[in-house]
Simulated scan of single mutants.
Amino acid sequence: MNLKEQISQYKPYHAQEAKEQEVMLRYLDTFDNLLTRENEFAHFTSSAWIVNQDRSKVVMAYHNIYQSWSWIGGHADGDADLLHVALKETEEETGLTAIAPVSNDIYSLEILGVPAHVKNGEPIATHLHLNVTYLIEADENEKTTIKPDENSAVRWMDLDEAVKACTEPEMKVVYQKLNDKLKMMK
């Protein structure tokens, strides 16, 4: 199943997700390069909401650019298999290898505004991340490692602690939504 079909078949959690799903599908019909950063207006990213086995904790990393605790994820960079991207980013950014998707299905959709910033000495213009999130399970006893060019700490947090630790108001809303969905699964 291709990315457009996956997004089309996703059942939104609430009205905001339904609107973002609609916009993502429209962008997929409008642009042919949404899987690469060549599209400086909007491009796909994939994130992992990494939970322990009993779903009581999540992995958060202290993000160097945003100076905030955040989820794990990254750019598609041409890879249409966004679950693969989420798993790859999980390993790269946390060092965790005992990981598996809870499901191959999309867990959440978000359109995230990214403010202008500098990365690796290069200016990056304000743009949108068309983000697809997957629920990933990991072994909370496995040692984590940082990825110095992206984060300076990685640790397990209780669900509520993860939301509180984030200093980005718009991301707190996203993390709360992810936790609320998780609590419904128990």
Rank of each mutant, 00 (worst) to 15 (best):
M1R: 09
M1T: 14
N2D: 15
N2G: 03
K4W: 03
E5I: 06
S8C: 06
Q9K: 10
Y10P: 00
K11N: 13
K11F: 09
P12I: 01
Y13Q: 10
Q16R: 06
Q16Y: 06
E17R: 05
A18L: 11
E20H: 06
R26Y: 06
R26D: 13
R26N: 09
L28K: 02
F31Q: 06
D32I: 00
L34Y: 04
T36V: 01
N39W: 03
E40P: 05
E40T: 15
F41Y: 10
F41A: 06
T45G: 13
T45R: 11
S46D: 00
S47W: 08
S47K: 12
A48T: 05
W49K: 06
V51D: 03
N52V: 12
Q53P: 10
D54C: 05
S56I: 07
M60A: 08
A61W: 04
H63D: 15
W71M: 09
W71A: 12
I72H: 00
G74N: 00
G74R: 01
D79N: 14
A80W: 05
D81R: 04
L83Q: 10
L83N: 08
E91A: 12
E93T: 04
L96H: 10
V102Y: 09
V102E: 09
S103K: 11
I106T: 05
I106G: 04
E110Y: 09
L112P: 03
G113I: 06
V114A: 09
V114Y: 05
A116M: 01
H117I: 03
V118C: 10
K119L: 14
N120Q: 06
E122W: 11
E122K: 14
P123M: 01
I124T: 10
A125M: 15
T126M: 13
L128Y: 14
L130S: 06
L130C: 08
T133Q: 10
T133G: 08
I136N: 03
A138P: 01
E142N: 05
T145L: 13
K147C: 14
N151Q: 03
S152F: 00
V154L: 04
W156E: 12
W156I: 12
M157F: 12
M157P: 10
M157H: 13
M157N: 11
D158A: 07
E161G: 07
E161N: 07
C166L: 04
E168W: 13
E168C: 06
M171Y: 14
Y175S: 04
K177S: 09
L178S: 04
D180L: 04
D180A: 06
K183W: 10
K183D: 08
M184H: 11
